[in-house]
Nucleic acid binder design. Structure first.
Lengths: 304, 304
DNA sequence: CATCACGATATCTTCGAGGTATGATGCGTG
DNA sequence: CACGCATCATACCTCGAAGATATCGTGATG
């Protein structure tokens, strides 16, 4: 038995007329009669009572019709769903991001993605760079946002944002008096950094930056991500943070641009041989809408 | 797209190997590859990632597989259900019966039928002969049990039980002294009958029987079915009832066989051009198990 | 009784499902 | 590194069957 038999049978059952059903199906009447006969022969019982006009379904035909419709519908729905999956509009993806990104750009990306692919379940996980790379390699994570360069051969990445580095100072620090600072101005200050293993690439990038400025930073405290800012605010030391931290808008922190700052790169990372169209679509969306630190707040302002 | 494509796709998806899937399907590997390719081309996206061993499903393939299984299952279930309908093991039938039959035979028939066709919903309706014939003609009733001959051209019937007629007497009636009675012995007694329109054939049969005995009965009360017995018990008059009434076993009634009684025929009736296999099966069951007045009680006795 | 409507049958053509032989490719092993 | 093996794709052929056209059988209708 083939779907053709069911389609033809359903057409005849609905039209209750072989001629009209054949016309609707775009074939001649004799082949239609034959196909239905073949189906009946295969099943071993009649589906139509042809002895009177208009023809009517037998009890078996009535029963089969319901199931045939269900089967045809399942096929149609299956094709539709599969197409959505192929287009990356259906499925589930797991996205890693540095917690700092939550405040500046991530929600915009998620919103844009959700608009294009409402049936994709997104699992977001705030993770330091190291954890993201680990997750990507283990296949638990599908895409991530990582700062600094990347050296994993099985991962692919793309710069999605370049931002200048800022100096984070406690409000009562003497240097807050100056609007413009260079890195060497803080060469003797105590530093607060995140632990190296949380993001070795970005960590090494920052330390290398200090080396170029002629000193190696005195790290007095280590804290993860956002906590760095709290330690700076509490006066433990200064720190170097990406420009986007401004979005957090804490008034217990003073941020000053670093004049001699190189740009820090935020990279979108995924597995080299990614097979998930949903992930591909996510990457496409990020490329399209970009990662704009301010977008979020402007929109909110417009809406209110 | 045909079921073949889905079956082949599902086989490959389950085996994750074209060769094994082809063996399972009983075809060679190249045609299988081609069919799956055709399906992919028609859909416009890939279902398998063939680039590594063993091959794996794409996201779209994974999605389609679920629906394909559902569709194939719906077809299988549909064929099975339709076959049951064709065999008369599925559906609904409406059975009419004279209320007297409830005590002697009907439950046995229903039990036997239920055993053969547990998925047929039976609607039983106690109805006088007239009502049954009306229902059969209107298509509301599918089979019935009627006493006496039948003259509707569009109905077919079959005798399922022949029984002698009995004289029903109140216990204090003088004739109860005699064991053996003929109809003419009660030619002057008052009679209790059911109204003629409740079963004209049986009514006329009874009256004709009296005529043959040389009198016409003095009907003093009319009552439907079982109520006749109550009126007899109350002493309103005598009545003529089928042998099977003995099954009711009322001790306020005395039954005496009529020596000159012709047999009364219980007929199974259905529509001439019945199309329902469930009805055909019901008729078959009645033919098979018969309508035995005593069967019911014997069985009950055996079980306890 | 002639006609019409409608499904079945007969016969032919063409397309494609499935067969065999072989090629392309990736992987493990001596 | 070469070789063999496993595995899927391609090439080509055959035959069955889906569908077209013409026609028949039959029940309903004026």
């Amino acid at each position: 038995m083939e779907l053709r038999h069911l389609r033809y049978f359903a057409a005849v059952a609905e039209e209750r007329h072989f001629g009209r059903a054949a016309a609707r199906l775009g074939i001649a009447q004799p082949p239609l009669s034959k196909q239905v006969q073949d189906l009946e022969r295969e099943l071993g019982f009649e589906l139509f009572d042809r002895s009177r006009r208009p023809i009517e379904l037998t009890a078996a035909g009535e029963t089969l019709l319901e199931h045939a419709r269900a089967a045809l519908h399942a096929v149609e729905a299956g094709v539709h769903e599969a197409r959505r999956a192929a287009e990356g509009r259906r499925g589930r993806i797991s996205v890693g991001y540095p917690s700092s990104l939550a405040y500046c750009g991530l929600t915009d990306i998620l919103r844009a993605f959700r608009k294009q692919a409402p049936d994709v379940t997104i699992r977001t996980q705030p993770l330091p760079s190291g954890g993201q790379i680990e997750g990507l390699l283990r296949g638990e994570l599908h895409v991530g946002f990582v700062r600094g360069p990347l050296h994993e051969p099985s991962l692919v990445s793309e710069v999605v944002r370049r931002e200048r580095l800022m100096l984070a100072l406690p409000p009562d620090h003497p240097l807050t008096a100056r609007k413009r600072l260079a890195l060497r101005d803080v060469s003797r200050e105590p530093f607060v950094f995140f632990p190296r293993d949380r993001g070795p690439a970005f960590f090494d990038f920052l330390v290398g930056f200090c080396r170029n400025a002629g000193f190696s930073p005195k790290v007095v405290q280590e804290a993860s991500q956002v906590d760095v800012l709290s330690l700076v605010a509490a006066g433990f030391g200064v720190s170097i943070v990406p420009d986007s931290v401004r979005e957090i808008r804490r008034d217990d922190i003073v941020l000053r641009p670093l004049l001699d700052s190189p740009v820090s790169e935020l990279r979108l990372v995924w597995h080299r041989d990614n097979r998930s169209p949903a992930v591909a679509r996510f990457i496409e969306v990020v490329r399209c809408v970009g990662v704009h630190p301010r977008r979020n707040r402007r929109r909110r302002a417009k809406r209110t």
